[in-house]
């Protein structure tokens, strides 16, 4: 099986290790991974801020970059949701591009979604001794309807003890530019999230979106807290090298 990786701008620039881990996990299941170098960003920052002309420019580039890919896998629920839900609408006045947008939307998968629904992985071979909890990012759980998938994968990891996160449906306060634009409100939201994480007693916070994890992780660091923040792919890859 062949897939193309859409790394996302955040992981490309700030968290390349997540990308490497995605590649590693996919290859361990015999998937052939390529990385079209012409990919940039899905355009969500512009789209959510109302700059739809600019978002279309990014979107066209991404559509072109993955035109020849049979499937696209991305380690971000949010970017996958951008492509799946908003790309077709973004080109509602350009039928040709709309068709191409739908084609990309149909073949794009979030990482856990791909493992569970396409590869039908039932036998994660990983051991990760830790006490952890999972953050359901909004665009992944609400936008894509993916809640059980990462939990199912993590549930198969040996020695990984998962705790339910109270108020797990509440946003962490990231929201892209919201975190900077309305930083005081965002601060209260992330602090409440951290309070809830702390009540679980977890040492590791796992998630599927580096945006949220950058927000929560950055706040944890600012507050001098020790909780480690990881992407699902990192847990599977690190645990796989047991």
């Amino acid at each position: 099986m062949k897939v193309s990786l859409f790394i996302t701008c955040l992981a490309d620039v700030f968290y390349p290790k997540v990308g490497m881990n995605v590649v590693e996990v996919l290859r361990s299941y015999g998937v052939e991974v390529d990385f079209p170098q012409d990919q940039t960003c899905c355009g969500q920052p512009a789209f959510n801020s109302g700059y739809h002309k600019e978002a279309r420019e990014s979107a066209r580039q991404l559509i072109k970059a993955f035109a020849d890919s049979p499937m696209v896998v991305t380690p971000s629920g949010s970017c996958a949701s951008m492509i799946r839900h908003y790309y077709p609408d973004l080109f509602k006045d350009e039928p040709e591009w709309k068709e191409r947008a739908i084609e990309l939307a149909d073949k794009t998968y979030e990482f856990s979604e791909f493992l569970v629904h396409v590869l039908k992985v039932e036998d994660i071979e990983a051991k990760f001794p830790a006490h952890a909890t999972y953050h359901h990012s909004c665009h992944m759980s609400r936008g894509l309807g993916l809640k059980g998938e990462p939990i199912k994968l993590l549930g198969q990891v040996e020695d990984l003890e998962m705790e339910d996160l109270p108020y797990c449906n509440d946003c962490c306060g990231f929201g892209g530019t919201f975190a900077a634009k309305m930083s005081d409100i965002s601060e209260k939201m992330v602090d409440e999230k951290i309070k809830n994480i702390e009540t679980t007693g977890a040492d590791v916070l796992i998630g599927s979106d580096m945006g949220c994890l950058m927000n929560i992780g950055g706040r944890l660091r600012r507050l001098g807290k020790e909780v480690r923040v990881m992407h699902v792919a990192e847990v599977l890859a690190e645990g796989g090298q047991k």
Binding site: I7, A11, D12, V13, F14, Y15, P16, K17, G19, M20, V23, R27, E32, V33, D34, F35, Q37, A179, A180, K181, S183, D184, S186, E187, V190, M214, N215, G218, R219, R221, R222
Partner: peptide, 29 residues
């Protein structure tokens, strides 16, 4: 500044994913 008022930001990685891919990642396919 709005971001860093509240939280730390990691410095962009020394080697981005795309650079890693070009140098090493790709070859290991």
């Amino acid at each position: 500044g709005g971001w860093t008022d509240v939280r730390d930001l990691p410095q962009p990685a020394k080697q981005s994913f795309r650079e890693w891919w070009k140098k090493e990642g790709k070859g290991r396919n």
